[in-house]
Amino acid sequence: MRVAEQPFQFVTASYLTRIGNQKTHNLTDLGRGLEESSEASIFYHTFQSLGRHHFLTEGFSNDFAQWVLAACNRPGLAEQLASLDIRDYIAVGDLRRDLQNIVAAYCDAHPEEARQAAFEDFFFCEAIEVSVPLGIEAWTLEEFRRGLEMLSHASFHFHFISSRLRLQLHTNDFSLWLAGNLGLESLAKRLDRIDIYTNTIEGAQAKMLALVDKELAS
């Protein structure tokens, strides 16, 4: 049984939503809001939003796309915004730039639609993260499995999705530890490939557990 040099520390994260003083009435405003809003706000409406709506596995990607669809009735633009995969980003600034570019291109091509009032305003909010160690640590793959099984949705999202921004790497806490501390690079890659857009958090967690079980059985 391989024992890690450093244990994996399971953490729970909880989020406060802070309401910003910025709101948008139409697509032109949205473009401006994307430019002016804080990084915490972009994080809230993309990374955080996916976690908040993890149980929607068909067609929900981020708050911007959903607002463009439901409040502005622009399915084409919504689809483009929804197609951005947050796992491709290790910096919020890059994600903001891509969102801005998509909205700006649409507004340039459709100036009248861009000025049309939405059914409802979009309010920019921010996520404030508070993390607390759960007091569970893993030195071996068996212990890791036990800890993984006990994680809530919020903790799983913290380690699997939000971690990319924290690490500034195209990976997640679990994979980083498995590869770096237990030398399980192949398992780490398989875990990282689990699609969070087409799985609920429960589904992703179950797939991860199955992959770990397979590794333990081999």
């Binding site: 508070v130 607390v132 759960l134 007091g135 006990m150 994680l151 809530s152 903790s155």
Partner: peptide, 15 residues
């Protein structure tokens, strides 16, 4: 809610 959610409430309340 599941046991995990309830136990995490307790963890958050620790401090």
């Amino acid at each position: 809610l599941g046991a995990a959610e309830v136990s995490e409430l307790r963890a958050l309340a620790g401090r």
